[in-house]
Amino acid sequence: MNLVLDALAWLLDSANWDGRGGIGARILEHLGFSAAVVAAACAIGIPAGVAIGHSGRGRSLVIVLTSGARALPTLGLLTILGLALGIGLDAPFLALLVLALPPVLAGAYAGVESVARETVGASRAIGMTEWQLVRGVELPLAAPVLLGGVRSAALQVISTATLAAYVADTGLGRPLFEGLKTQRYDMMLGASLLVALLALVVELGFQLVQSAAARRAEPHRAPSGARERISA
């Protein structure tokens, strides 16, 4: 347990928090980078997933993408893109986007797909246009499952952003790898504990948002957390 105490001492030492490479800056970097990737994945994946769920065309694409992404080793993707694109944030951004896209796409698709056919039919019968149907009926009802997909993606990105420090100077993976190379277990373990904590906080935050969305979508039913995660 001495190792853990050393790590906590490293974490609580204010000298380690300040400056450009300090813990504070690394946390912001980690979160900012992860948020940018997830936002990009949502910008592409949600419209595509909703379109597939609404039209029913392209289902097999979603299945192939999600099962394929699970088998694809993240580190392999990071390193091959790192070699191809050079040092910088391009390679990790692209690699993480490839990881984040399938769960967002699958969540959006499965959410819209799960809306009852009678509900869709009823909406058309009362004269809703397709656009009104998507925005006013399908999206709110799909929200809990859709958010489940975004949550999977966000967790995976936050996890893997740590690994991204192997190919680029970014995020909380940096002190982790620095500690590994210089045999400083306190730094390595401190950074590890911090990433784990960050992931847990994000996971719990998403749980709250998701159950709020579930209450809104189906007020009469007990909230259930629809969830699906792929490896990180």
Partner: peptide
């Protein structure tokens, strides 16, 4: 078990030896 799964793999590889 759900929360356990949220912990990223690389940090877990480093936390386990410490415990």
């Amino acid at each position: 078990t759900g929360l356990l799964y949220a912990i990223p793999s690389l940090p877990l590889f480093i936390i386990i030896p410490a415990i």
